[in-house]
């Protein structure tokens, strides 16, 4: 099932896609270029919300809302706490990024990576359409697969989270020289 660009433009869902994809990209660009550290982290919210909306658009509703809860709810707060604790310069600061001697090669590398991968993707998958009749993935179906087929990886992830919790506390805790180890 292939589709030409003219056919692509006639589908309403593609305009929804563009309305979500453009803020996602602009937010990502502001994350990497903003001279204000708090704004850079808050633009990450725009990018993640855009990706969550795209997941919901694709029918992956549980994944979309998990992104909202875990990333926008928890990870952004962690980032903001990290900024406050490390006394990063609030307000506008040029020193948050490298000078142009690093920026120009980095931009070239990124553009080359994007061009090569986008060309390869367009060559391999160009015009292949996602079946329009796919409904939303029910969370119950997802849970059945997680707790049957993927139960061992699920348990491993829970151990990873537990060790990250213990490790985070052990690293960030102030060592008291008076207290015997």
């Amino acid at each position: 099932m292939h589709v030409s660009f003219e056919q692509w433009l006639t589908e309403v869902a593609n305009y929804v896609f563009l309305a979500l994809a453009i803020p996602t990209l602009v937010g990502a660009w502001m994350v990497v270029t903003s001279t204000n550290i708090v704004r850079a982290v808050l633009y990450l919210v725009v990018t993640l919300a855009g990706s969550a909306a795209l997941f919901i658009m694709l029918g992956a509703e549980f994944v979309g809302w998990t992104v909202v809860l875990v990333y926008i709810g928890a990870v952004i707060i962690l980032f903001l706490i990290g900024i406050m604790i490390t006394r990063a310069p609030l307000g506008s600061h040029e020193e948050l990024s490298h000078p142009a001697t690093v920026k120009i090669p980095a931009a070239l590398l990124s553009i080359v990576l994007f061009t090569v991968v986008a060309w390869a993707v367009a060559d391999a998958f160009g015009g292949l359409i996602i079946p329009p009749d796919v409904g939303a993935t029910r969370t119950g179906q997802l849970a059945e697969v997680i707790f049957q087929r993927f139960v061992i990886p699920f348990e491993v992830v829970s151990l990873v989270l537990l060790s990250a919790l213990v490790g985070g506390i052990a690293l960030a805790r102030k060592d008291d020289p008076e207290e015997p180890a």
Binding site: T24, L25, A28, W29, V31, V32, T33, T47, A106, A107, L109, S110, I111, L113, F114, V117, A118, V121
Partner: peptide
Amino acid sequence: TALFSIGLYG
């Protein structure tokens, strides 16, 4: 791909 390239630049 575009998001990944922007992240790499950052």
